[in-house]
């Protein structure tokens, strides 16, 4: 599966769940991504790093087709998840997004109760049984390591939680739909150091069951939480490798300049 020439430091038996090949992305006439080819391994954490505006978030949002909501945007090339092209006309975006959950930079709980926030996804997908819903909610909150903090106030408004709690709630909400892949768009950039640490610990726990793709412009964070790292620069993928390799001995000069803080 893994092309050794491109990914010399990936274990050969690594299962790849997302395959992007020659992806271009356009906002109207402006091209934001150029010829991105990238493999993302299952049940590992892949970090996308690079200076702001490098296209890492845009690429992330291509993976669950959130970019569809931007008028006049266009994707070329192929992105497959589990060998299935997700940009064919008959792709069911609803099904895709059930498979591929997303956590945003700014925590965005709905102004509903904690319970209703987590139950939102399952309800939309047709789950009506209150017992089953309660189960899903508890399970998801536990997975997101926030259950103990909120179990006594499930029916309180989620807006009353602290920033870090809100973000973990959003993770629980994404998990409740039962995705296999979790996309995280700078999930800790708006949080204090302590909350950031909790999110990073959580990512460490989730990686055993989920494929995680995380965008971050905090290089220490990428080094701490990820197994593989892809470096983006000006809309192009410069280099992708095992995280320790990227941070100690990158192949490309641009990567090295960025890692050592010469720009970005």
């Amino acid at each position: 599966m893994v092309e050794q020439s491109l990914y010399p430091n990936y274990p050969q038996d690594l299962e790849m769940v997302i395959t992007a090949s020659q992806v271009d992305f356009f906002y109207g006439a402006t091209q934001a991504l150029f010829d991105i080819s990238l493999l993302i391994p299952a049940k590992h954490v892949t970090a996308l790093i690079g200076p702001s505006g490098c296209g890492k978030s845009t690429f992330l949002r291509c993976l669950n087709r959130m970019n569809d909501t931007i008028p006049h945007s266009r994707v070329e090339g192929e992105i497959s998840i589990n060998q299935k092209d997700i940009y064919t006309p008959d792709t069911d975006v609803v099904e895709l997004r059930k498979e591929v959950g997303m956590v945003f930079q700014k925590s965005n709980p709905f102004p509903k109760s904690i319970f209703d926030n987590v139950a939102y996804g399952p309800r939309i997908h047709g789950e009506k049984d209150p017992r089953r819903l309660a189960e899903i909610v508890e399970q998801s909150l536990q997975q997101a390591a926030i259950w103990d903090e909120v179990k006594d106030r499930l029916h309180a408004n989620a807006m009353g939680l602290s920033g870090g709690q809100q973000q973990r709630l959003c993770i629980a909400r994404a998990l409740a739909v039962g995705p296999k892949i979790l996309l995280m768009d700078e999930p800790a950039s708006a949080l204090d150091p302590k909350s950031t640490m909790r999110i990073e610990d959580l990512i460490g726990e989730l990686r055993t069951n989920y494929t995680i793709v995380i965008v971050t412009h905090n290089m220490q964070q990428a080094a701490r939480v990820s197994d593989y790292t892809a470096f983006f620069y000006e809309g192009r993928l410069i280099e992708c490798d095992a995280t320790p390799k990227i941070f100690t001995n990158p192949r490309q000069k641009q990567t090295e300049d960025y890692i050592t803080g010469r720009f970005g």
Binding site: N64, M66, T69, V94, E95, L96, R97, K98, G101, M102, F104, K106, N108, P109, F110, Y120, G121, I124, H125, C170, R173, A174, V177
Partner: peptide
């Protein structure tokens, strides 16, 4: 954010 979160949940 409400719109994004909602759509991302399918």
């Amino acid at each position: 954010g409400f719109r994004d979160a909602s759509l991302a949940l399918g």
